[in-house]
Computed example of a mutant assay.
Amino acid sequence: MNIFILNAGRCGSSTFVQACKHISNFSAAHESRSTLTGDLRLAYPDNHIEADNRLCWMLGRLDQKYGNDAYYVHLTRDRQASVESFVKRMDYGIMRAYREGILMGGQQQSALEIASDYMNTVSRNISLFLKGKDHTMMFNLENASSDFVDFWNWIGAQGELDKALAEWQIRYNASV
């Protein structure tokens, strides 16, 4: 079984994977195939947990390959906190790609407007993708301690839950 942590970014996906590394019956990685194209891009091993915010742009391909057989988590964070974090990263990564590629320069909008538009777009893409899927879970960063226990049980995880929960006390990939 494959598990995909779908998210907009800036919501704890790095921490999620660090926690999942304490699961012994699944491998886990963050953006492990993000530089690949074609069939290789989505060629994840069996029993793997993957968090990659770029998957929100490949949902059609993800559905074609994994469909209703995979488990999907929609990882979110307080919207305003995510937007503010993206504003700090406007000049690189996914925000630069969104501003320059999708919005064709985004010169008329403020960084706050662009980050907010990105969050709206990605959240709605993920919500629509999950509609009708049998194996979905909402996971909120602000409830990580309880939501992760639910996730652990939902996937039948084995390993060291106490160590996994301790990871949620560490801020990985935090914005400055």
Rank of each mutant, 00 (worst) to 15 (best):
A115L: 00
A174F: 04
I94T: 09
S24I: 06
Q18V: 02
I155P: 10
L161S: 03
G106L: 04
L165K: 12
R79H: 05
I3W: 00
C20D: 05
S14G: 13
I170E: 05
L112V: 13
N7G: 05
S32H: 15
A97I: 11
T35E: 12
L40R: 12
N120C: 11
L128T: 15
D52Q: 04
D117P: 02
D147G: 11
M95R: 02
D63P: 03
Q169I: 04
M1I: 05
R96V: 00
I5A: 08
R61C: 01
Q18K: 12
E100W: 00
M119Q: 15
S127M: 10
A157D: 05
T136M: 01
H135S: 07
C11E: 07
A51C: 03
L103F: 02
S24C: 09
M58C: 12
D69R: 10
Y44P: 15
S123C: 11
Y172M: 00
Q158D: 15
N7A: 10
Q158C: 13
K65P: 07
I94R: 07
L36W: 01
G132N: 14
F139D: 11
A97F: 00
F26M: 09
V83G: 13
N120D: 14
L62C: 11
S110A: 07
T15Y: 01
M90P: 06
M1N: 06
S145E: 14
S82Y: 03
